[in-house]
């Protein structure tokens, strides 16, 4: 039943996120003619989808919504007066943490899958086609990066007691991550560019594709593996902090 608790606590956020992502993807597909007509240079449909969905607006939305999904937890429950009940349940704090993280990661993966379901389905209605396999590749990138971003917000929620401070800290963490990834020092390590990996630019550049949107190269599994490891570490540290903390 812990799963049910975690789902009930996050389902409104998840529903809002799902609706917003679907709306955004739908709007991007429906606006394709207007935007492409006003583009500075000829823009293929695949590149348009990449630049509007996977590289920019929809990715930004996804990142922010993943941060929102990562907020909450026992520290926040204390402020609402329900931490006592939760901690008196006959389950370890580690299990509470693990179930919340797992529920969140499933939601993050489902949200990442939404563009892959909608865009190929909606494209024929505007006289275009977008392959499901390619959309699915981006979903994997989003889910991998999203897992780390979720874990970052999860970690800050276990450290910072305010309800909203973890959101600001997570955004700042991502900004720092993307600024540092640009430094020449990290040039040979594309895995450090989390957002770059998520929008596929690094992958495409590594394989020398002429068009970023046309990539069909193997996914950057080492990077995705690194994000998963970082995510597990962050959740583990959050779990350790929660397990040792006094909830008076």
């Amino acid at each position: 039943m812990l799963w049910y608790k975690m789902w009930r606590e996050s389902r409104v956020r998840f529903a809002i996120s799902a609706v917003a992502l679907l709306w955004m993807c739908g709007a991007v597909v429906l606006l394709q003619q207007r935007v492409r007509a006003h583009a500075d240079e000829p823009l293929s449909y695949a590149r348009y989808i990449w630049s509007a969905v996977y590289k920019a607006n929809v990715l930004d939305l996804y990142v922010l919504l993943v941060i929102v999904l990562g907020l909450g937890g026992v520290l926040q429950e204390r402020a609402q007066g329900t931490a006592g009940f939760t901690l008196s349940l006959p389950v370890s704090r580690w299990r509470l943490i693990a179930v919340r993280a797992a529920t969140g990661w499933v939601q993050v993966a489902l949200l990442a899958l939404l563009p892959a379901l909608l865009i190929p389905l909606l494209s024929p209605f505007v006289g275009e086609a977008y392959p499901f396999a390619r959309a699915l590749q981006f979903s994997v990138l989003w889910a991998g990066g999203g897992m780390a971003i979720f874990a970052l917000a999860f970690f800050f929620s276990a450290v910072l007691s305010g309800a909203y401070s973890p959101a600001i800290a997570s955004v700042a963490g991502l900004i720092a991550c993307s600024v540092f990834a640009e430094l020449p020092l990290l040039d040979g390590h594309p895995a450090f560019d989390l957002l770059g990996t998520m929008h596929g630019a690094r992958l495409s550049a590594a394989h020398g594709a002429a068009s970023l949107a046309a990539f069909a190269a193997p996914l950057p599994w080492p990077s995705l593996g690194l994000y998963a490891a970082v995510a597990l570490c962050l959740v583990g540290v959050a779990g350790g902090i929660t397990a040792r903390r006094d909830f008076s």
Partner: peptide, 11 residues
């Protein structure tokens, strides 16, 4: 919901 307001604002 305190987080729903944040999600809606981000959206």
């Amino acid at each position: 919901s305190e987080y729903a307001a944040l999600a809606v604002s981000f959206v």
